[in-house]
Design a protein around this nucleic acid. Structure first.
Lengths: 127, 127, 127, 127
DNA sequence: GTGGTCTAGACCACT
DNA sequence: GTGGTCTAGACCACC
């Protein structure tokens, strides 16, 4: 279901967050769906349960998941809405990155064609 | 000349690296120019000399600066070339970010117009 | 595992870098292998943790090791490739040294036989 | 007569030592010849007199020059002999470097042909 | 004065 | 526990 790369510099808990969010955005996880339990997922991914707990906790904060003590963890009703809202925030980070590339002399056309290319890809390619 | 935010999550030495690189790309620092000394800059920014040393050392590794023990630290001859080469590597990171935005439903046109806007800005705005 | 000479003019952190690289080239350390922790090695060698950190950090920069905060430090997948690439750069330094020896009247035959001798040695002798 | 590169990582006093030794080995400076005075050379090269003093002092130690207080600094009688003797010592350094290159997989033939090439060059090329 | 190395010890985020 | 950043302060070689 998920896969973590322990050699990556990206913290494991962030990898999990990213993958859950991706599943939700792709519609592979629907509102109300139950997530695997902390313990089950920790075993499946061979990581510490605390790490899963941290990922689920953060996804709860973001309104993507809803933890129900004693029952489990579920995809929240407006998970997709929350995510889209959140990602919109990241556009300012993109601006920052673009300014640095512009400063380094990367021509506008190169960026534009990269954008075209990405948007021509099949949904979910290589993410 | 430089400014650091000690409360930022970005390490201080990386802030300095980023600012030096920016000055070089903007042409505000030319090849052969002498950098402020490790000690002088550490006092100006109220940080430990070791932190400046680390930043200068990394910039030396990257071929942006040239440290000469006993004499000082200078902008290297092909600093801009080295930087452009290096930034080009970061394009793959941009692709990754674009895929995430696409997945979140941000329309292509919005990205394109953001790119246009950035490239219309005056050199060095708000970086 | 490693040994450092604090009286040497070669900085301790460079000694460590050199020895790690040697182990990797000899195949005594394989991709994916975990390095001793910063603290453990600092105790074993009786040097400051910062010194080990500097060595590991530089080896990470060179693509020989891969540091993963919270998990440890591992030999990277293409460590050997990176090292060979890097060593090839040092051939120009060899040329320089050879010219000086030639100038001092060391005959070509003497150099050639030294080369022969070195390449006849068992792998890793006396390095 | 001499030239120093202040951007080089090689200490200035070592650059001077190297160049004096080279002139002696090439026969461009003969035993008994007088060296430029410390002050004159320091002005010509735009470096601190202390730096010249240090270079001359080391060359005196090595038996290449002979300082006569109040008179000046002269090329010693057996300067060439001393130098050849000294350079012979550096062969062990060469062995060390060769072992590292061997370990990095540089083939013997490549080294051999580099040696051939160097020894075919005109005397003093590019040193 | 300069850059560079090292120690000692603290604190952080991540597992 | 792990790697990583930072401070404080010392010492070195070089100019």
């Amino acid at each position: 279901m998920f896969a973590v790369d322990v050699m990556s510099r990206e913290p494991v808990y962030e990898q999990i967050i990213r993958q859950v969010e991706r599943m939700v955005l792709l519609g592979l996880m629907q509102p109300g769906d139950q997530m695997p339990s902390v313990r089950a997922l920790s075993i499946e991914l061979s990581v510490n349960p605390n790490t899963i707990q941290k990922a689920y906790g953060e996804l709860d904060n973001r309104g993507v998941l809803q933890s129900v003590p004693g029952r489990g963890c579920f995809v929240s009703a407006d998970a997709v809405g929350r995510l889209r809202e959140r990602k919109r925030t990241e556009l300012s980070g993109l601006s920052q990155a673009l300014r640095e590339l512009k400063l380094a002399g990367i021509p506008r056309e190169e960026i534009q064609s990269l954008v075209e290319e990405i948007y021509r890809e099949e949904k979910g390619d290589a993410l």
